[in-house]
Amino acid sequence: MFRFCLALLMITCGAPISADVIGRVRVIDGDTFDIAGIRVRLHGIDAPEHKQVCETEQGANWACGAWVSARVAEMYGGKRARCKEVDRDSYGRVVARCEIGGRDVGQRLVSEGLAFAYRKYSMAYDLDEKGAAVNDRGLHASRVQNPAQYRATRAQGRIPPDRTCAIKGNISKSGKIFHMPGQRDYERTGINLSKGEQWFCTAAQARAAGWRKARR
């Protein structure tokens, strides 16, 4: 009776309840899966973003993010996983440790050089990453920017320094195009002032400077 009351008290007090997520894997990218309709972010690891580019020792660029996503899909796509929730992130995703075939997925990905130990949140895979680096496995055989730094760099130029002048004057192969808040490509467009791109306060100001409005 005491145990029942204690359990009931925990529920009514809003105590967090973690549960297993079990099901077939659909790979989103190197550290994110869809399992049984639930978006799962692997705990303690950080893989390159899908569009991230790395550099070989010879100085050539290659699509390392897409390569990692493809490799992880080959390894785990369609396989049955059991994940134990650790937390929820700011996007509402379940952050979890997952096992497939009895092996820790995060540990394997870091050990094979397909992801990095995300030391900000966990030191669980610190030695696995060091072993991969020493042996030049996977990403460690090339020059790769830390995924967190890459995301921070991409975010630069996306947030208007003055909220009253939030129109983005972008320069692309299509010419000078300005994006209004709410348009399709507004959020992902970054402004690089050193390339001649500009922030505008009004559409009229942008047109007067030679920019045309984005179609969508």
Rank of each mutant, 00 (worst) to 15 (best):
G59V: 01
H140R: 08
E57T: 06
R184H: 14
G196F: 10
G77C: 04
Y125M: 03
V21I: 15
G113L: 04
V21L: 06
K79E: 14
A70C: 01
R158P: 07
V94D: 06
F4V: 11
G169V: 06
C98L: 09
Q145Y: 01
D104G: 11
K79S: 14
K130Q: 14
L42R: 02
D31Q: 06
T153I: 11
L139C: 08
D89P: 11
V53H: 02
R215I: 11
W199A: 09
I171Q: 07
Y186G: 12
G77Y: 03
W62I: 01
Q156S: 11
L114S: 02
D126Q: 11
P160K: 08
G77H: 02
P181N: 08
S111I: 03
I45T: 05
D128W: 00
E57H: 00
F2Q: 12
G101V: 03
Y121C: 03
D20K: 12
E85Y: 00
L9E: 07
A66V: 00
A60K: 13
G101L: 09
W199Q: 10
E197Y: 04
G102Y: 02
A206H: 03
S69P: 05
P161N: 06
Y91D: 11
S122Q: 06
V144W: 07
I159Y: 09
D87S: 11
M123E: 05
G138K: 02
G196Q: 10
G77W: 02
A60L: 05
A36E: 12
G77N: 06
W62H: 11
W211L: 07
A117H: 02
W67G: 03
E57M: 12
R215T: 13
G14P: 13
A152V: 03
G190N: 13
R39D: 10
A208K: 13
E55Q: 10
M10H: 01
H140P: 09
P181W: 01
G138T: 05
E74D: 15
D29K: 07
K173C: 04
K79L: 13
V68P: 07
A209H: 03
A206F: 05
A203T: 11
R24L: 14
A117D: 15
V86K: 15
P161G: 08
G59K: 10
K213N: 08
E55G: 00
I167Q: 07
T189F: 00
I171M: 08
R207C: 07
G196I: 11
E74Q: 14
G157F: 01
R39K: 14
A133F: 02
R163N: 13
K213V: 13
M10V: 13
I22M: 09
G23N: 09
K84N: 13
R3N: 14
C83R: 01
V86F: 00
Y121N: 04
Q183C: 10
R163D: 15
D20E: 14
H43Q: 10
R82C: 01
A166T: 03
D46A: 11
L8V: 09
P147A: 08
L114Q: 07
G30P: 08
G169Q: 09
V53A: 01
N146T: 02
A47W: 00
Y121V: 08
E129F: 01
G14T: 05
